[in-house]
Write a protein that binds this DNA or RNA. Structure first.
Length: 354
DNA sequence: AATACGGGGGA
DNA sequence: TCCCCAGTATT
């Protein structure tokens, strides 16, 4: 593109953004802290999902210092249901580093930002451009799609070489001023017009005259990506153990899936009622009554849990150091229980009459 | 280069 | 059922 064309592209896109930008909580005051929190929450997560989490988070933890000293259990409770929980743990780690190494202020350049845990190539570019006005690209899934269509890039965009090519093309398009708006405009375009599914709304697009994919009538078939691999299926048996008005939870390990979150005790495989009774006896747990609960399925990005469950009513409280006994109300207020256990949590709320 | 890591919404 | 989402860290 000629320099004149580039200027025209920038103007068209920014003008469209001025008129069509959605009103979002993190846009009303794009301070570095708020932009940071929003960008972390928005990683692989839809805008509509993030909105309520963001508002609640900022209200309770308004500054980096507050975040740096926030207890992890409280942090995980605020993150409950949002997924990718290492984001929350990295957030606190990064806040402590910012207090220690950067005098409590987020650095403005993308290189320093990337030295903080949880901040990679996309997020560093987003923060430095949106919060600090630095001329850095912010390439997320939206931008990849928009650029692949503009360039009519038919190669696999999962290939780092192809991604680098898109980055180079985008660098040349970045304006000297309003870079944050420019980056957000590209993402907004991807989210509202240049959409991933269904027909892209090219007729409404402010930059369709620059789009090679549009002229070749190819936009809807781009970008091309590597095929996904299939999920592994795991069978689980969930034990909903009740003693008086309390239920047993245990804390998951520090590493791996759903680390440090709470769960109902579970065993590998689908145990029959008889096997379940046998397990109870083996651990010297006296059950008054065991009934089976409806099966439930939970889909992660890379695993499927196919769960069956048993409600196990106990005579006395077992002296198992692993287990923590809590009421449904306490779970709701204090314990971070992943969405995978929703069906069984709903059951205990139901039988507790809450 | 491939895999781990959540959860939900829409076709 | 599958894909995608304002991706990052680890292997």
């Amino acid at each position: 593109m000629t320099p004149e064309k580039i200027i025209e592209f920038q103007q068209k896109l920014l003008q469209w953004y001025t008129e069509n930008a959605r009103i979002l909580p993190w846009r009303e005051d794009p301070s570095p802290y708020r932009v940071w929190i929003s960008e972390i929450m928005l990683q692989q997560t839809r805008v509509e999902t993030v909105k309520p989490y963001f508002e609640r988070f900022i209200k309770e933890i308004p500054t980096i210092e507050d975040l740096a000293k926030l207890p992890e259990d409280r942090l995980l409770k605020l993150w409950e249901g949002l997924g990718y929980y290492s984001r929350a743990k990295n957030l606190k780690k990064a806040a402590q580093m910012i207090v220690e190494k950067f005098h409590g202020q987020l650095p403005s350049d993308s290189k320093s930002l990337q030295s903080l845990p949880g901040i990679g190539p996309y997020t560093s570019g987003a923060i430095s451009s949106i919060a600090f006005g630095q001329r850095t690209p912010a390439i997320d899934g939206n931008v990849i799609r928009v650029m692949a269509r503009i360039l009519a890039e038919e190669r696999n965009v999962d290939d780092p070489k192809v991604k680098k090519n898109i980055e180079n093309a985008l660098e040349r398009l970045l304006p000297e001023h309003s870079v944050g708006d420019f980056n957000q405009a590209l993402m907004e375009l991807g989210a509202t017009l240049c959409i991933p599914k269904g027909m892209p709304k090219c007729l409404q697009c402010p930059v369709n005259s620059f789009c090679k994919g549009y002229y070749q009538d190819m936009a809807q078939y781009l970008p091309r990506k590597s095929p996904k691999k299939k999920r592994k299926i795991e069978q689980k048996t969930i034990e909903v153990m009740q003693w008086e008005d309390k239920f047993a939870l245990r804390k998951r390990p520090e590493e791996g899936l759903l680390s440090n979150l709470w769960e109902f005790p579970q065993r590998e495989g689908h145990l029959s009622l008889e096997q379940c009774k046998k397990e109870m006896k083996k651990h010297n747990i006296e059950a008054r009554r065991i009934i089976s609960l409806p099966p439930s399925k939970h889909i992660f990005s890379h695993i499927e849990w196919h769960m069956i469950g048993y409600h196990i009513l106990l005579e006395e409280c077992p002296k198992n150091i692993e287990l923590t006994w809590v009421t449904p109300g306490e779970i709701r207020e204090k314990y971070s229980l992943p969405s995978a256990f929703k069906a069984y949590y709903a059951f205990i709320e139901l039988i507790s009459g809450e």
